[in-house]
Amino acid sequence: MVLAGIGAGLAVIGAGIGIGKIGGSAMDAIARQPEAAAKIQTAMIIAAALIEGVALFAVVVALIAK
């Protein structure tokens, strides 16, 4: 149970860093090119969703393995 929690937490750290980087870069990009905000947002959400998917795999595995 504790190990599963640690595993889930580790996965969340990784996903957090990844999504944070995506968000930060997207903000940079939007600040640089406000007219492309819509396109950047879509790309950002897709990338974030993909990372999140990987993190959720980890969380689900951690929960099942408990």
């Binding site: 998917g53 990987v54 795999f57 969380v59 689900v60």
Partner: peptide
Amino acid sequence: ALMIRLFANITA
């Protein structure tokens, strides 16, 4: 991934 994403997000 599509399956897991929706399932895990809503369940969480």
